[in-house]
Every structure is written in structure tokens, then in C-alpha cells.
């Protein structure tokens, strides 16, 4: 099978900064399919949705869809508008900016954004 993923030699471990400022390892970067997300569980019980864009850049936002309360944003589709990446909730399709967490369809709604790094 042909793949656009990085080769194992260059793969990094993705880490997310938790509430106590510690970096929590999540997974190998190669686990992420460009344009799709995965969910990770932080030690404090929060869930994070982690995405990789087509360019390789990684984003992390809260996994909870504020419109339904369900922990599902990691299973939404990634897109971009005017060059800015977003994820569309798989339930009612509201879009969230992956860089800022702002909802593109409702100014009053936003989700938390988490610092993420590859190490």
C-alpha cells in the first residue's frame, strides 16, 4: 500500500501540554492520517482531538463538541477555508478553527486549544 506517511526513521512522538504544564506523550506522529484526527486521554480526564494537516502540521483542540456535549470532534472531517484549517463536527457539522478553537458558525462558541509538539 502506498502511503503519504513519514518513514519510521523520521517519525516523532507527539506530546500535548496538560493543565499542570507537563508534556504528555500521545502517539507516534505516523499514527495520524493527514486530514483525520485521533482522540487522546489526558491524566486529568480531559479528552483532546489531535489532527494532522496535509502539510504535516499537527493541531490539538478539546475533543468535546460544545453543541452536543459528545466527545467526538476527533472524528470530524478536516478542511480549510482561506488557508485556515478547521474540523467539522461529525454530529451537526459546525466547524471549529484548528488554530484558535473558535467556532466558524457561531461567534459565541469556542473550544480549548492545546499546545502540541513533536519530539
Amino acid at each position: 500500500m502506498t502511503t503519504t506517511l513519514s518513514s519510521p526513521t523520521t517519525t516523532k512522538t507527539l506530546e500535548i501540554r496538560s493543565s499542570d504544564d507537563s508534556w504528555v506523550p500521545v502517539c507516534e506522529e505516523s499514527r495520524l492520517t493527514p486530514g483525520r484526527g485521533v482522540a487522546a486521554l489526558l491524566p486529568d480526564g480531559r479528552q483532546v482531538a489531535v489532527f494532522r494537516g496535509r502539510s504535516g502540521r499537527v493541531y490539538a483542540i478539546d475533543n468535546r463538541d460544545p453543541f452536543t456535549g459528545a466527545q467526538v470532534l476527533s472524528r470530524g472531517l478536516v478542511g480549510s477555508v482561506d488557508g485556515r484549517p478547521f474540523v467539522a463536527s461529525p454530529l451537526l457539522k459546525q466547524r471549529f478553527d484548528l488554530e484558535t478553537g473558535r467556532c466558524l458558525d457561531d461567534d459565541e462558541v469556542a473550544v480549548a486549544v492545546y499546545p502540541v509538539r513533536g519530539k
Partner: peptide, 11 residues
């Protein structure tokens, strides 16, 4: 849109 991610409609 070229080089971008596409969107939840076209994908």
C-alpha cells in the same frame, strides 16, 4: 483552495 485541505463538503 489548491494545496489546501478541502472541506467537509467536497471531501
Amino acid at each position: 483552495a489548491k494545496g489546501g485541505e478541502g472541506c467537509e463538503v467536497c471531501k
